[in-house]
């Protein structure tokens, strides 16, 4: 994987420090504003509510007063799929090639105008990052004025998901071109959630570029990924110094859990 590092090949990814995340939801709103995410009058039915990044509330399952909770923001994991070949769970199943994986950035794209709404990708994604536009997007009168031209508004009947704010990458590249550069700096391309996070819990960058902050962070002993045992190879890493949080990231058999707890004690 490391050999791929040069100026053209990147693996954009995220490291989210769960010990810092306060579950405030600013990332979600920043994302919605940035990406023209629509809303309805009632958004309490969460499995029909579009949020590209969703903050989950985890608990350690223990009764009062030993309860602990942790917040886990979940953007699209931009899986590279088995062997980093880019065949993420959703990309390979799309019958109309509406979702794609670019080896240049490692970002999983979703093309709304190509998607015809079969929802197979939603079924394939174990992270539930994909959302279907069950309704026509309607903004209360006047509010369509804040829509950003950088992201197209999705029509009813298609699937959408987090793009790692790809348009920001495009705009950063344009700026670089005009300034006579071919490549962009780490700070020039940051996702909206990263920028907004008031707790600075999110770090974004090129996972295979040692100059980027995420490179070191992802190697932390406290780092883990969601459902990595499924071999989806997600590009979002999480940090937590709490074992139960790390264990919540994946399914483990009882004996595996015991082993992990013992290993922690030894360490």
């Amino acid at each position: 994987m490391e050999k791929g590092h040069n100026t053209t090949f990147k693996r954009y990814g995220m490291v989210i420090d769960l010990d810092k995340c306060t579950g405030c939801g600013a990332c979600m709103v920043a994302c919605m504003q940035e990406n023209n995410v629509p809303f309805k009058k009632d958004e309490t039915d969460k499995i029909r509510s579009i949020t590209w990044i969703r903050v989950y509330k985890l608990n350690n399952g223990k009764p009062y007063p030993d309860t602990e909770i942790c917040y886990l923001p979940r953007p699209c994991q931009h899986c590279s799929g088995m062997g980093d070949h880019g065949h993420s769970p959703c990309v390979s199943v799309c019958p109309a090639t509406a979702t794609d994986y670019g080896m240049d950035t490692g970002i999983v794209s979703q093309i709304y105008t190509r998607c015809f709404g079969c929802r197979y990708c939603m079924v394939a994604c174990p992270y539930h990052v994909r959302h279907f536009n069950w309704w026509d997007p309607v903004w209360p009168e006047g509010m369509e004025n804040y829509l950003s031209p950088n992201v197209s508004v999705r029509m009813r009947g298609v699937v959408e998901k987090c793009s790692f704010c790809y348009h920001r990458y495009q705009l950063a590249r344009e700026r670089a071109f005009v300034q006579g550069r071919k490549d962009i700096e780490e700070h020039e391309y940051q996702t909206a959630c990263t920028q907004a996070c008031p707790a600075k819990a999110i770090t974004f960058g090129d996972l295979i570029n040692p100059a980027h902050a995420v490179y070191e962070l992802k190697n932390s002993p406290n780092a883990f990924q969601l459902l990595e045992r499924l071999q989806t190879y997600p590009k979002v890493y999480y940090l937590s110094d709490r074992l139960w949080v790390r264990m919540a990231g994946d399914n483990y058999l009882e004996e595996e859990k015991r082993e992990m707890a013992q290993a922690k004690i030894k360490r």
Binding site: C24, V29, M143, K200
Partner: peptide, 17 residues
């Protein structure tokens, strides 16, 4: 550089009906 959820929603107050 950070912003809270309320501040990030500001434009909905601006353009709201």
């Amino acid at each position: 550089g950070g912003i809270c959820i309320l501040g990030a929603s500001g434009l909905q107050y601006l353009y709201g009906p």
